[in-house]
C-alpha cells in the first residue's frame, strides 16, 4: 500500500527532536516519559488515552520514533479542534509498520 504518511517530513523532524529530548532507551520511550508530554497539551485524559491506544501500534507500552510521531500528530490535530479518530486511518500508519 503506497499511501504517503500524513506526518510531513518537517513535522517528523520536529517530533523526532522532542522524542530525542525525552531520553529514549534503546530507541523507545516508556509510558511514564511520554505521559507528562501529552498531559502538557491540556487535552482530556480520555482523549489522551485514545491517542496512546492509536499510536502504540504493537501494544508494548512504549513508543518508538514513528509511534511517537503518530501520538504527537494526533495531539496537535486535537488541539486544532479535529476529533481523534476511533481507529487509525491507513494514511496515519507509519510506512515502517504497514
Amino acid at each position: 500500500v503506497d499511501i504517503p504518511w500524513v506526518v510531513k517530513p518537517e513535522e517528523k523532524m520536529k517530533f523526532d527532536t522532542i522524542f530525542d529530548s525525552l531520553g529514549p532507551v534503546g530507541g523507545m520511550l516508556t509510558g511514564d516519559k511520554v505521559k507528562p508530554v501529552l498531559l502538557n497539551s491540556k487535552l482530556p485524559v480520555d482523549i489522551l488515552g485514545r491517542v496512546w491506544e492509536l499510536s502504540d501500534l504493537n501494544r508494548d507500552g512504549m513508543l518508538d520514533k514513528d509511534e511517537f510521531s503518530v501520538a504527537m500528530y494526533l495531539v496537535y490535530r486535537a488541539l486544532e479542534g479535529e476529533p481523534v479518530p476511533m481507529s487509525l486511518p491507513p494514511p496515519l500508519v507509519p510506512p515502517s509498520k504497514r
Binding site: G31, D32, V34, K35, L38, V45, D46, L48, G49, W52, E53, D56, R59, D60, G61
Partner: peptide, 13 residues
Amino acid sequence: QYPAGGSSTNPFL
C-alpha cells in the same frame, strides 16, 4: 495502578 480489565500498556487508563 491500572483498573482491572484495563490495558496495562496504556499509561492513561
